[in-house]
Design a protein around this nucleic acid. Structure first.
Lengths: 228, 228
DNA sequence: TTTCATTATATGGTATGCCAGAAACCACCG
DNA sequence: CGGTGGTTTCTGGCATACCATATAATGAAA
């Protein structure tokens, strides 16, 4: 008997306007260069409700969530403003990131399989310190994926959620970060060391390397990024 | 000319109904024994709006924020439910806590003054391992304040915000945690060691001690707390 | 008696309108 | 010309009404 397997796919769960508006707003804000001078940070409820084609109610609920998340600030009867993080706040975020990702690295040495760890090579080995300059974009992407992979392999979803939230904010200053060739080169070296520590199941060392690696970024941002 | 200085004080800023409702809901949920069996986890919008004396609009905005924070889950057209964290999620929270507080300890050794560190003694020394049994309540409070103090002295506000958020959730299972005399005794020993590491500005050691101390709690919860 | 279809109801989702406070505008007066 | 008081307007806060769907209730058929 031929099994005409029916291709079942979850019923298209039409999300509420609130959550769709939330996503749309978050994406829109993420795409703005909010740290460029002269950018309009104010959001107009009524204008937004027209642009999104929804009423103010679900829009306001979405805004309330974004406020809770720290992306916007709602000043009663004054306006709704996209939040520009101060440099100090960005540095704190990187500090928290260092704490979480180093813990993640420790967890990786405890719970990940050899095969999983081996896959990290793909995100590191392909970059030769020689032609880094020409592949800055690719490197930047792979860099992000490398860190995300460590968090994922740790198996701790909460760490993933929090670092994702932080990334939303830190990403906004990405364009203002000077990517020196030299820093990229050293970064790759760090990554290779980290992979090695993970492979040898050296939790202490992996934790320390990841922490120091991220704190280097912190140091770099503190020194070279101008925000306020 | 006599200056009759007018005593100016900031006008009492009446908060919005949304934020007051948010606070009230959060407090109310925090006061519920949500992990006891048979507790009603469903929230009725209309009933709540009557109880709080506000319309559904600000109430729903408050609920949207609580949803973002993970305290409630809003199931479209199904209902609004207080979230019971699974044991696995609680363990993840403690893991994150360990990561953040150990980083905080490291920061304390770098930025806190001797005087500030010295104040930690007040939260530790007063407890003698002899009469611990009779002062379990006080110890429990001082325990919380000790950990909060380390976070505060680190100067990293973000760590404080996140750990506070975690505490909101973990507090709910507090009543289900068995406080053995022995664990409390060992905990005090740990605390004294931590203070000593902070005083000697031994960042590596302070970080490790705090991490291990919190991971002991994780281990204990994993072993003795039944939730699901 | 059981089951299934139909209907009623309850509950969250959304739209809309009005209100209050803040800011912008303007006219009047010194 | 500048400042002050009043007025208008703009904007978010809140209440209410209606809508859509999930669930419960009901009744008819097997």
């Amino acid at each position: 008997m031929i099994k005409a397997q029916l291709e079942i796919q979850p019923i298209e769960e039409v999300q509420s306007l609130k959550s769709r508006t939330y996503d749309a707003l978050k994406t829109a804000i993420g795409g703005m260069k909010i740290y460029d001078p002269g950018v309009e940070l104010r959001l107009d409820e009524r204008a937004l409700s027209l642009q999104f084609g929804v009423s103010r109610t679900p829009l306001r609920e979405a805004l309330a969530q974004l406020e809770q998340e720290g992306l916007v600030r709602i000043a009663p009867r004054r306006g709704i403003f996209i939040v520009r993080k101060t440099k100090a706040e960005i540095l704190e975020m990187i500090t928290v990131w260092a704490a979480l990702e180093s813990m993640a690295a420790r967890l990786v040495t405890e719970v990940a399989t050899d095969a999983e760890i081996a896959e990290l090579h793909g995100l590191v080995d392909s970059f030769d310190s020689a032609d880094i300059e020409e592949h800055m974009g690719e490197y930047s992407d792979a860099n992000i994926r490398f860190h995300a992979a460590i968090v994922a392999l740790s198996g701790c979803k909460l760490i993933g959620e929090i670092t994702n939230g932080l990334f939303t904010h830190v990403r906004a200053i990405r364009q203002r970060t000077i990517f020196e060739r030299d820093r990229a080169r050293r970064s790759i070296v760090d990554h290779k060391e980290i992979v090695e520590a993970l492979e040898t199941r050296n939790g202490e060392r992996a934790e320390r390397l990841v922490r120091e690696h991220t704190l280097k970024l912190r140091q770099h941002v503190e020194q070279f990024v101008q925000l306020d």
